Amino acid sequence: MSRAHAIPTDALRRARIDYITEESVYGTVLVSGMIVVAGSYGATSLQVFLSVFGTVVVFWAAHLYAGTIAGHGAFEGDDTTLSTAFRRALRRSVGFLTSALPPSIVLLLGALQAVDDKVAIWVALWLGVVILAILGFVVFTLRGDSWPVRILGSLGTAAFGVAMILLKAFIH
């Protein structure tokens, strides 16, 4: 099938602009890494959740700040206002925050003792793999690639999450 025949829906295009960004991938890998580190020392789901939440907020704020500063008058003749640069950076960073939500919710369920701590930590890690797989699949779908390429792209993106799980297995 040619790319001309694989035009994605408006919903996919909108998702690409707001959520399917490098920040989404980076945020998911960051959360997975924090789960690996925080969960490797017998920490409870609550401790891991608090560690992940705090780290994501700090990294997101730093990313937002850096994006604002870098986008404000970045080159001679650029008259981008500070507020415009902030809005652009905020929009780009939405995926960073939203990618952290599903694993954080699972960790919170563990903290509330709705599920066992270890189960919550492992499910949160595997959820990161699923999120990465979806991000990869959507990107290759938007590009209009064939099904085999979409699947390979999805697996390639998910491999970052699997790498975190292997780190957890080796550290633990």
Results as ranks from 00 to 15, higher is better:
56 V>S: 14
57 V>F: 10
59 F>K: 07
59 F>R: 06
59 F>M: 09
61 A>V: 09
61 A>S: 12
61 A>M: 04
62 A>Y: 07
62 A>S: 09
62 A>P: 04
63 H>Y: 13
63 H>A: 13
63 H>M: 00
64 L>Q: 07
64 L>S: 14
65 Y>V: 07
65 Y>H: 09
65 Y>R: 11
66 A>C: 08
66 A>F: 11
66 A>R: 12
67 G>L: 05
67 G>T: 01
68 T>S: 13
68 T>D: 03
70 A>M: 02
70 A>W: 03
70 A>T: 04
70 A>C: 05
70 A>Q: 12
71 G>Y: 00
72 H>G: 00
72 H>N: 13
72 H>A: 02
73 G>T: 02
73 G>I: 05
74 A>W: 01
75 F>Q: 12
76 E>S: 04
77 G>E: 00
77 G>W: 05
78 D>M: 10
78 D>P: 06
78 D>I: 08
79 D>I: 10
79 D>V: 11
80 T>N: 14
80 T>S: 13
82 L>N: 02
82 L>E: 14
83 S>N: 06
83 S>A: 14
85 A>K: 09
86 F>E: 10
86 F>N: 05
86 F>V: 12
86 F>K: 15
87 R>N: 15
88 R>I: 01
88 R>W: 04
88 R>D: 11
89 A>N: 02
89 A>S: 09
90 L>S: 13
91 R>W: 06
91 R>E: 08
91 R>A: 03
92 R>L: 09
93 S>C: 03
94 V>D: 11
94 V>A: 12
94 V>Q: 05
95 G>T: 01
95 G>E: 05
96 F>T: 04
96 F>G: 12
96 F>V: 00
97 L>N: 10
98 T>Q: 02
99 S>C: 14
99 S>A: 06
99 S>G: 08
100 A>E: 08
100 A>V: 09
100 A>S: 15
101 L>E: 08
101 L>K: 10
102 P>M: 01
102 P>H: 08
103 P>H: 08
104 S>F: 00
105 I>N: 01
106 V>H: 04
106 V>N: 10
107 L>M: 08
108 L>S: 12
109 L>S: 02
109 L>N: 10
111 A>Y: 12
111 A>C: 14
112 L>E: 04
112 L>P: 08
112 L>I: 06
112 L>W: 01
113 Q>L: 01
114 A>F: 15
114 A>S: 15
115 V>P: 10
116 D>Q: 14
116 D>I: 00
117 D>L: 10
117 D>H: 10
118 K>H: 14
119 V>D: 15
119 V>Y: 07
119 V>G: 15
119 V>I: 14
120 A>E: 02
120 A>M: 02
120 A>Q: 04
121 I>P: 09
122 W>M: 09
122 W>P: 07
122 W>Y: 04
122 W>C: 04
122 W>V: 13
123 V>C: 14
123 V>I: 00
124 A>Q: 02
124 A>N: 06
125 L>R: 09
125 L>D: 10
125 L>I: 01
127 L>Q: 15
127 L>G: 07
